[in-house]
Design a protein around this nucleic acid. Sequence first.
DNA 1: ATTATATCGATATAAAAATATCTAATAAGG
DNA 2: CCTTATTAGATATTTTTATATCGATATAAT
Lengths: 208, 208
Amino acid sequence: MVPGPAISLRAYQRITRYLNFLNQAEGGDKHISATRIAHALKINDVVVRKDLAAVSGNGKTKVGYARTELTRDIERFLGYDRPADSALAGVGRLGQALLSYENFKKYGLNITAAFDTAPELVGREINGVKILDASKITDLCRRLHIKIGIIAVPASAAQAAANALVEGGARAIWNFAPRELSLPEGVSVKHEDMAASLAVLTKQLERF
Amino acid sequence: MVPGPAISLRAYQRITRYLNFLNQAEGGDKHISATRIAHALKINDVVVRKDLAAVSGNGKTKVGYARTELTRDIERFLGYDRPADSALAGVGRLGQALLSYENFKKYGLNITAAFDTAPELVGREINGVKILDASKITDLCRRLHIKIGIIAVPASAAQAAANALVEGGARAIWNFAPRELSLPEGVSVKHEDMAASLAVLTKQLERF
DNA sequence: ATTATATCGATATAAAAATATCTAATAAGG
DNA sequence: CCTTATTAGATATTTTTATATCGATATAAT
C-alpha cells in the first residue's frame, strides 16, 4: 500500500476529539461547522478545517458538515468500520480492564485471544475470551492470523511477549509496559505512555 | 510560578523512553552517551542531547552522562521525587487497574481516595484505598487538598465527575473517558486517548 | 608527546505544524 | 433582487520541532 500522507499523532488526537464532541451533543442541529467545533474545543479553526478536509471533504459553504455524514466519515477514517483481531499478552489488572473495555469493539478492535503465565488465570474466561497459557502465543497467533499484539505484562516480561507475538505474525504492537522494545523492521509499535502523560499533568500543576 | 520553557509532549515521551532504557540495561557501563541512547532508540542524536541538556546538564565530553546521576536527574525532572495525592472517580475495571498499578507510586502519584456510585463497590477496599460514595467527592477532595483528579467513569458520567473534582479543588484532570470535558480556566486536562493511539496503530498496519 | 576519536554543546538549516489571511460560494434576511 | 454574514478551502506566514554542521574538549591510542 502507498505510504499515505502520514497524518500526525496530534491530528489523530484532534480527530477523535471531534468524534467525541459529535457523539456527546447528540440531539443538536443537523449540521455543524468547523468553526463551531473549533470554538467548542478551543482549537484553531483552520486546523479543524484542514483535519476535516482530510477526513471527509463533504463540507458545504455556509452550512458546514452534515453531522451524521461527518460522524460516519471520521469513524471510517479512524478504522472503526474494519474490525481487526488482536491478541492480548498479560491478563493482570490492566489486561482484564482492556479485555472488558467495551469501547474497543466500537473502535474496531477485537481481542480474540488472551494469554498469561499464571496457572490460576489460565482456563478462565473473561468477557467471552478464554485465557490460554503464554507458551501458546506464537502458535495461536499464527493460526488466527493475528496482526495486532497488545502487551500488558510486567516490564520484565515485555520483550519476551513481544517476540512471541511477532513470531506469530503480529505486525503492530500496542505496548502498555514501561519498557523499550526492540523489534524487527516492519513491525510498528505504539507505546502507551502513562508516565509521560502524568508528567505533563503534574508539570502543569506546578505552575500555580 | 514561572511558565517555564514549555517542553513539548513529545519531549516528555522521549525522556520517559530514556528512563526506561536506563532502567532496563541495569548492570551495564557506568556512563552512557547521548549518542548511544539515540542509536539504541532510533532517535536523532541532537534531539537526545538537547533533551538531556534540559534535564541534567551533567554531560561530560567524551564520556557522556553518569548513569545513576542521569537517572536521578530524569526522575527529578519528571517529578517522581515529589509525590502528589490524587482522587480516582470510577472504580470499574479500568479504575481497579489504575488503583492496583504499582508503578504509579514510582511515578510520584498516590491515589489516596477512590469513588464510585455502585453500592456493591462502596465500602470495599482495593490496594489499601477505601472506595467511597461518589456523592462525597467534592467534600473529601477539599479536606484532603487533592489537586489531581482521575476520571475512569463511563463517558456519560465524565463531566459530572469532573465538576465534582474541580469543585473540590482539583487543578488537573487525567481523563480516561472518551468524552470532551468543559472545565474552568486554570484547570488543565490530559486526555488519555486510547482511540487515537489505536487508530495510529491500525493505520500503520494498513500499509502492508 | 602527539594524534585520532568520541562526545557535548552551540549554532544554523530544514522540515513540519499551526496560525493568519484571502477568495469564492451560498444561505439568510430584508 | 440585493446585501450581509458565514463558511469551506486555498495560500501565505509564523512558529515550533527536528536535523545537520561545527567547534571545543577530554579521553584513549600511538
